[in-house]
Design a protein around this nucleic acid. Structure first.
Length: 410
RNA sequence: GCCAGGGUGGGGUAGUUGGUUAUCCUAGGGGACUGUGGAUCCCUCGACCCGGGUUCAAAUCUCGGCCCUGGCCCCA
């Protein structure tokens, strides 16, 4: 028997129903903020991703060569594609550009809870708004979107300027190492690294910065910073917006193209893979041959949100089963069509079974059953049976449709 | 890439000091029931992850692989 590839999942109808619900909720929030959905290719030129993230990621990508000898990769993320698309198709679109996407990505990693080799991201990119209000909007939208799914999370906001300032005299290689320690809250490792370069003041400042929960204090720790006004504006806007967040000035988000604001969200009951959102302000376009335009965006780990939400109680829509005898078969098709035209989910019997067996089967999924036999064909009425009460009556078709329609969703 | 625990019909399981036809529940199909359901009864379908080794004999012991779950590493 053929197994599905490692790290992939099959989704049965119940799974898809809740996934589509949550996806729809996120899309609706994006729509209300004016973000329009876009779509990019499932695979791209390998260089697109290595230019953004370095050669190190080759190990963790699905890479292949096509028949023309092109080196391609299944996308491990969407942001690079979005920016490429902006450069290719939308450079002259009036700014700001508000885009969102829902798409699957592929990474060759060891699967574990909340981590799969094929996974979905819902993301948002705001392009061409290098303002405090733009940054704030993206954070507010992120919060609105997570909130609307019902997931329990905490939002952490940081800014790279503080750490960059403290580390400006440290050589880049050590910088990365230090940022790595801070991102992981690995203070022992941090201490060792700092001791090796012989700067204990720096250690104390960094620890103070990471633990800092007050913006004023962060400025005191880091000293004069040119971006001070912009940062204060952004944070003030967030405070006014009423969203709940905490500071974490230790967020490094790994890479160099982030320029300032960064933020992350974490959910409960997810084990070690508990980050459900990550984002920030960045400049990428110039890497791909475009103008040096500012962007801000985030991506939600959709599958992790689903895992965190767990079993969602679904609203079940009303279902009608249409059963019939041989004599009633043609009339049954007409009746089923009328129910469907009224917007009711209607499942017609298509098995070669007796009435009893047909009803027996319908009762597993349906709320009502409509019986069409010789008698109904002759009278033009239908027999409508409520499978919850067991009561049935013979009525004309409009009345039957009206009753089922009035039953509503449960 | 590393570590731990796992893998028996579609789902859930029993069996593992090697030994007859591999247990039970559930789900599926058919019937008792040719116009009335979930009950009951009967019939039926269907499994030892893969490969090598030990042995008269392997679901059981052993080795390797694959996959699952969780943790580490990584996390764009």
């Amino acid at each position: 028997m053929i197994q599905k590839p490692r790290g992939t999942r099959d989704f049965l109808p119940e799974d898809m129903e809740s996934r589509r619900n949550v996806e729809g909720t996120m899309r609706e929030v994006a729509r209300r903020w004016g973000y329009q959905e876009v779509c990019t290719p499932e695979f791209e030129d390998l260089d697109l991703f290595t230019m953004r993230s370095g050669d190190g990621i080759i190990e963790e990508m699905y890479i292949f060569e096509d028949k023309g000898g092109r080196k391609l990769a299944l996308r491990p993320e969407i942001t690079a594609s979005i920016i490429r698309m902006y450069i290719n198709e939308a450079k002259v679109t009036p700014k700001p550009i508000r885009w969102c996407y829902f798409a699957d990505c592929f990474r060759y990693e060891r699967p574990q809870k909340g981590r799969y080799r094929q996974f979905w991201q819902f993301g948002v990119e705001l392009i061409g708004a290098d303002t405090a209000l733009g940054d704030a909007e993206v954070v507010m939208l992120a919060d609105d979107m997570l909130n609307s799914t019902g997931v329990t999370y905490e939002l952490k906001i940081g800014h790279l300027t503080f750490m960059k300032k403290l580390l400006k005299d440290v050589e880049p290689k050590i910088q990365r190492k230090v940022m790595g320690h801070l991102d992981k809250k690995d203070f022992d490792g941090l201490k060792t690294t700092i001791e090796n370069i012989g700067n204990t003041d720096l250690y104390n400042s960094l620890i103070a910065l990471v633990n800092c929960q007050d913006l004023k204090e962060a400025f005191e720790i880091a000293g004069p910073i040119p971006e001070k006004d912009r940062i204060e504006q952004t944070i003030n806007l967030l405070n006014v917006s009423g969203i709940k967040y905490g500071f974490n000035f230790g967020i490094a988000r790994g890479l160099d193209y982030y320029t300032g604001l960064v933020f992350e969200s974490f959910a409960q009951n997810l084990g070690s893979e508990n980050q459900i959102l990550g984002g920030g302000a960045y400049r990428l376009a110039h890497l791909f041959g475009g103008d040096d335009i500012a962007s801000c965006g985030f991506a939600i780990g959709f599958d992790r949100v689903m895992v965190s939400l767990g079993e969602i109680k679904r609203i079940k829509e009303t279902v009608v089963g249409v059963v019939s005898t041989n004599e009633g078969r043609q009339r049954a098709i007409e009746v089923a069509r009328e129910f469907r035209n009224a917007g009711i989910r209607t499942e017609m019997n298509i098995m070669d079974r007796g009435i009893g067996a047909q009803i027996s089967h319908a009762s597993k999924s349906a709320d009502y059953v409509v019986v069409i036999g010789q008698r109904e064909v002759e009278s033009g009425n239908v027999t409508l049976k409520n499978l919850h009460t067991g009561k049935q009556k013979t009525v004309d078709l409009p009345e039957a449709i009206a009753e089922v329609g009035a039953y509503g969703a449960r």
